[in-house]
Write a protein that binds this DNA or RNA. Structure first.
Lengths: 117, 117
DNA sequence: CTATTACATCGACAGACGTAAGTGTTATTG
DNA sequence: CAATAACACTTACGTCTGTCGATGTAATAG
């Protein structure tokens, strides 16, 4: 979260003169922003956010069939949301027989959390 | 972030018997999740996340015309992103003559930040 | 008043998203 | 093996999103 850019001094400009010079943006932040935005985007749905909330509190103890009745959506839709969370690197799953147990990957939220605080 | 749900005990089931009972979901969490998801969704774009990052470090000191050259997007697109951040309650703006100065609303990120940590 | 600058809004478009219904896959039960 | 249960994948569809170019609006400069 460094992003220390040089700011052009602000003053009233004469006509024909632009407000500010283009400022070089530090590439450092760019990949970090991509990663954090990906996580934030995955959390940007109420159902997925609540899913993460539930999984953080009952890691490895809840199967998908128990998650379905918590939300007013179909099982395939919930599976889709879990897939999104997994694609974002927030959760992973473990199969045990018929059941699939999801859990939040440790420290998956840390970078965003640190930046936010 | 309470969400303390009762978990049906998990055991292998006989055929013809469902995995789990529907579990009542506490409504408490729902609105909280809606608010936090809205904030997360607004942060779920690299440009908007970097915008918030810049604004947090230079609150009230950067006009829009200085933000434009930082990103490889057009001015209307940047205005659109700022509008999204404002709609999510993350930033607000102040007009001074020709220039518009954006700033992060204090504590706008706190609820999400607290939940994440 | 006219020209110009800063910023927002509008219109358009391709692509992504959330959702459901249907189907497929794998594992367990009988 | 046949039936069933848990879960993922496919298809489809309406909506939202990110982007740009063009236009609109307010304010300053001359």
């Amino acid at each position: 979260m460094p992003v220390d850019l040089e700011l052009s001094p602000k003053q009233k400009r004469a006509a024909g003169e632009r407000c500010c010079e283009p400022v070089v943006y530090p590439d450092v932040q760019r990949e970090e922003a991509l990663r954090m935005a990906e996580v934030a985007k995955a959390l940007g749905d109420p159902i997925r956010l609540q899913l993460v909330d539930v999984l953080r509190k009952h890691a490895g103890k809840v199967c998908v069939c128990e998650l379905v009745p918590l939300f007013d959506i179909s099982q395939p839709t919930l599976s889709h949301h879990l897939g999104k969370l997994r694609a974002a690197g927030i959760v992973d799953s473990e199969r045990k027989g018929l059941w699939a147990y999801y859990y939040v990957i440790p420290d998956a939220l840390q970078e965003l959390s640190t930046w936010l605080s």
